[in-house]
């Protein structure tokens, strides 16, 4: 039996909206540690890893670990019916083939419930090793989204290079070339405007812009995004889900043929 009551139900909508275009269906694994999701896009170039910890929930009961396979488009349809401030409660039986979502308005004057059909999904789980990253950049999520959008209008791939001077995003295409450099800024008046660069050694990697742009759909989740890079390894793009968990995206770099 699963029962999970999330006061900030709007958070769930933001998570699903952030990933539904990248991954069409996924298993949501539920255990005593909370909700976890790991899924790759159809081309197996990028991966989503999400964890919503059980202590994020006002009430959390999970008698037996279970895997709930869902169409994320259908899940998004259901969650669209929830108000942004609604309290969301998920309920499922151990051997059931449905999950029920209950939405309560903050004033408790409206209650609705939706039953979503579950499906069997074969998914491959990747073991992601703990990595000591050469460069970790924490920047405003809106700035990251803007850079991805601006550079996408010029080119298809971006070189992200982190040096002691800052982090440079470079692209080129038929129009010409574009460079955006983000420098460390820890003295901004507002904390949400700060950029922190932790550099152990310089690193430069090339990525397909369309995936990085897709990750920016998570912008409403957090004021900041963290890019973690190491030579010849996938970049990790992380959005914190407040103090309740995280949404991470991994993207394989392009390499010289």
């Amino acid at each position: 039996m699963l029962e999970a009551r999330l006061v900030q139900g709007g958070m769930l909508k933001k998570v699903v909206d952030a990933v539904k275009d990248l991954v069409t269906e996924a298993n949501i694994d539920v255990s005593s540690s909370g909700f976890q999701l790991q899924a790759m896009d159809t081309s197996h170039v990028s991966l989503i890893a999400m964890h919503l910890r059980s202590d994020a929930f006002e009430h959390f009961r999970c008698d037996r670990a279970m895997s709930m396979g869902m169409s994320l488009a259908n899940l998004a349809k259901v969650l669209k019916c929830a108000g942004n401030d609604d309290i969301v409660t998920l309920k499922a039986n151990d051997d059931g083939d449905t999950v029920t979502f209950m939405f309560e308005s903050p004033k408790e004057d409206r209650v609705s419930d939706f039953e979503l059909k579950l499906m069997d999904i074969d998914s491959e789980h990747l073991g992601i090793p703990d990595t000591d990253y050469c460069a970790t950049v924490t920047m405003p999520s809106g700035e990251y989204a803007r850079i991805c959008k601006d550079l996408s209008s010029i080119g298809d791939t971006v070189v992200i290079s982190a040096t002691k001077d800052g982090v440079k995003f470079t692209t080129s295409g038929d129009v010409g070339t574009a460079n955006v450099t983000v420098r460390q800024n820890t003295t901004a008046d507002k904390k949400e405007d700060q950029t922190i660069i932790d550099l152990k050694e310089p690193v430069a990697l090339t990525f397909a812009l369309r995936y990085l742009t897709s990750f920016a759909k998570a912008t409403p989740l957090a004021t900041h995004v963290t890019l973690s890079m190491t030579r010849e390894l996938p970049v990790m793009v992380e959005y914190a889900i407040q103090d309740m968990g995280f949404l991470r995206f991994y993207l394989a770099p392009k390499i010289e043929d």
């Binding site: 170039v45 991966l47 789980h125 791939t157 991994y250 394989a252 043929d257």
Partner: peptide
């Protein structure tokens, strides 16, 4: 020329 490897080429299948 650049090629786009999959994630499996970096991470192992668990």
């Amino acid at each position: 020329d650049e090629k786009q490897p999959t994630l499996k080429e970096f991470f192992q299948i668990r």
